[in-house]
Nucleic acid binder design. Sequence first.
DNA 1: CGAATAGTGTCTCTCAGACAATATTGC
DNA 2: GCAATATTGTCTGAGAGACACTATTCG
Lengths: 242, 242
Amino acid sequence: MDEKQFLKGYDPSAFPPFAVTVDVVLLTVREGVLTVLLVERETHPYRGRLALPGGFVQVDEDLEAAAVRRLEQETGVRRDVAHVEQLGAFGNPSRDPRMRVVSVPYLVFAPDLPAPTPGIGAAWVAWVPVRAVEPDRLAFDHAAVLAAGVERARAKLEYSPVATAFCGEEFTIGELRRVYEAVWGVALDPRNFHRKTTGAEGFLVPVGRDSLPGPEGGRPAALYRRGEAALLHPAMLRPTPH
Amino acid sequence: MDEKQFLKGYDPSAFPPFAVTVDVVLLTVREGVLTVLLVERETHPYRGRLALPGGFVQVDEDLEAAAVRRLEQETGVRRDVAHVEQLGAFGNPSRDPRMRVVSVPYLVFAPDLPAPTPGIGAAWVAWVPVRAVEPDRLAFDHAAVLAAGVERARAKLEYSPVATAFCGEEFTIGELRRVYEAVWGVALDPRNFHRKTTGAEGFLVPVGRDSLPGPEGGRPAALYRRGEAALLHPAMLRPTPH
DNA sequence: CGAATAGTGTCTCTCAGACAATATTGC
DNA sequence: GCAATATTGTCTGAGAGACACTATTCG
């Protein structure tokens, strides 16, 4: 049988049927606290429980396109103001009581945003500080997905410039430092942080203007934009726990 | 409608039908060269083309279990002599001409092994040096999967002790150095390498015996096993390209 | 002025790369 | 001895954390 005949006669039902979903781990920093967007499910299964936003991938839709679509539908965040990366695949056979589902979560970093309005499939949408999330209250295996996302975020800040995705287009070194402090959950020395960020080749580009002084007073800070570097040299290493 | 009724009346065909496969990027170091295991496909699509070993996930089978099963079926490698980690999800809608397929590749590091015998779905199995793989000759999107696996391997050697998975149970510093040199494709200074590996807390545990002298002559080397550390402190950084 | 934040400089310690020197094997 | 590999040690420079000090704003 030649390939054409083979394809024509091909029977998809010969393969185990799966559904594929995408979930979105949307992280931001609000008031100095690492925060994740959660929805309350309004349909079974796990109706009424908190969950990551997400949904089924359509037949001709790319995985990342599906995640970006759900992101826009449920939160109004456009992909061009955010960093989006795949977090892996979660496919434990018992993770969804309906049928066999493999979920491909995407990790998104966005600047602080106005509170989103509930969208498709969600009764309620809110920003929740990551430290306040009770793992057992999340639907499906979303506690593990969220934990993987937070750990990825912490590691990624060390060697890539993605922390800037949590800031606006222009930002000060102090704002960037508060991002690192929120994601890592540690206090950093402002003086060493300034020296290291401005010293890392291609990380930051000075805008040439100063910020307005903040509500707390203090000297206005120089504004920066993100530079071209894809990797941080030298890396911004987390303080060692011991 | 309560949850029970909902589940009872649930119709899986309401969701887009996907197939899910696992692929295995099995890397080893043979004669100082980073090498990947490839098969020749004996079925459509891409019949006769080179591909990564892999196959469909069964309905009640965990993703990693499916990858380990294919690994054992096609190569005889048991998971306890190898390092296995998920590499992500590849789900471009056009990646398989038969139907919509999402593949979840797994990255495996194993010590040098005897040549495997062809297994299910493969006409031919062989070790191929990674540098000799012609990307356009690979089936599906396996060139991209392989590239992701090799890049992950290179990065992972820097901050984790997984390089030891390429060695046997007991190994010398020189054998470990040749792993790093093969994966990174660079020459390393044996003296600095020795100082750094033996100095990294928990990386290596001395066995207390020496290896037999090699065929090239030279002083016998002390044998080591892998230590308990999950992360390398300090990291083994790749030489910067410039 | 003091409080708050921004930014510069300095000191010390760790660690990376370069490479000298010594140790132990086979031939 | 000579070639090859293993191992220890030494030097120098980059970069980390600790922290003194100056700069600029508001009240």
